[in-house]
Simulated assay, not measured.
Amino acid sequence: MENKLILVEGIPGAGKTTTARKIKEKLIAEGKKVVLYEEGMSHPADMSWNAYLTEEEFNSFISKCLEMWETSEKTISKEELKHRIEIQTRREEDHFILAYTRIDFPEEIYWGLVGEVAAKEICDGRRSLKEFTEIHLRRWESFAEKALLDDTIYIFECAFLQNHIFELLGVYEKSDEEILMYLTNLVSKVKCLNPHIVYIEPADVEKVIMKAADERKAPNESRKDWIDEIANWVSNTNYGKKHGLAGREGVFSFCKERLRIDRVMIRNLGIPVSLIKRD
């Protein structure tokens, strides 16, 4: 059976997005039907950068956006604004899952509402580990059931190792054994898709991160640079506080630990792995 699920992984800045896109292009050139889910997109399984909203919370967000439209420059219609929100929304059971960072708002003013829905994520310790686990397991199992119904190949960028290890290590400070148990349980839900990991392994963690930092500088002073946002996240995690991680050195230290854990996981998960070495 061919691999119906390809998991592209690596530390931040390793080149996951570029690699995932190249894999997609190659498979399409071979005549395959392929869907790529990049980080933050409306996703059938992962929850990173997606808010988990009740119907009341979702309707409230829509209402506030439409109220803001009334005093905006009205560069798009009210119907178009609703459409842009709805295409980033998935309804699953009794909740709405909103990829809020991907909404194509016509004006910056709408981003004032984003903090409200960001607080409704299940990541970064905003929900209990039990809820985080149960929601993911349910979604991954549901995705696998649907993915078996056609011949599409799915590519997930950083949805397996990165987003889960960030939570388990950074927020909950779990051991290697506990992380392995969690990921083994998660991947069991998609074993029917014959998953394959494509892992980008850097020779020099600091070099890779700083290259990404140079490429991802903020366009203006109103926003933080990518590296500073990562540093802020790391320093505010339970793991970061416990180990006194701060600034760029803190990012380097955290990502080196991530790389060590990644290596342990791919050795022990029993999933085929293609290793890409990066200088």
Rank of each mutant, 00 (worst) to 15 (best):
L5R: 00
V8G: 00
T18L: 15
A20M: 09
R21H: 05
K22N: 15
E25F: 08
E25Q: 09
I28V: 13
I28S: 02
I28P: 00
A29H: 06
E30H: 07
V35Y: 04
Y37F: 14
E38P: 12
E39N: 05
M41H: 05
M41L: 12
S42H: 05
A45F: 07
D46S: 11
Y52Q: 03
Y52E: 04
T54Q: 05
E55N: 08
E57I: 13
F58I: 02
F58H: 01
N59S: 09
F61G: 02
C65R: 02
T71D: 12
K74Y: 09
T75W: 04
L81C: 14
R84G: 07
R84T: 08
E86I: 08
I87V: 14
I87H: 04
T89H: 04
R91P: 14
R91N: 11
E92I: 15
F96R: 00
I97K: 00
A99F: 02
A99C: 11
T101N: 07
I103S: 05
D104E: 15
Y110A: 09
Y110P: 05
L113I: 10
L113Q: 04
G115S: 15
C123K: 01
D124I: 07
G125V: 09
L129K: 11
K130M: 15
K130G: 06
E131N: 03
F132D: 00
T133W: 03
T133Q: 10
E134R: 07
I135W: 02
I135A: 03
H136S: 09
L137V: 13
R138G: 13
E141H: 07
S142G: 09
S142R: 07
T152I: 13
A159H: 00
L161F: 14
N163D: 06
N163K: 10
H164Q: 11
I165A: 11
L169K: 07
L169P: 02
V171R: 04
Y172A: 07
E178V: 10
I179T: 03
N185Q: 11
L186E: 01
S188G: 14
K189D: 09
K189F: 12
K189W: 10
K189A: 10
V190M: 04
V190G: 01
L193F: 04
L193E: 01
N194F: 06
I197P: 06
I200E: 01
E201T: 05
E206V: 02
K211M: 13
A212D: 03
A212S: 10
D214H: 06
K217A: 11
A218I: 11
K224Y: 10
D225M: 08
W226V: 07
W226E: 03
D228C: 06
I230C: 08
N232A: 10
S235C: 05
N236T: 13
Y239A: 04
Y239W: 15
R248V: 15
S253Q: 09
F254V: 05
R258C: 12
R260A: 11
D262Y: 15
R263Q: 10
I266R: 00
I266C: 03
I266W: 00
I276R: 03
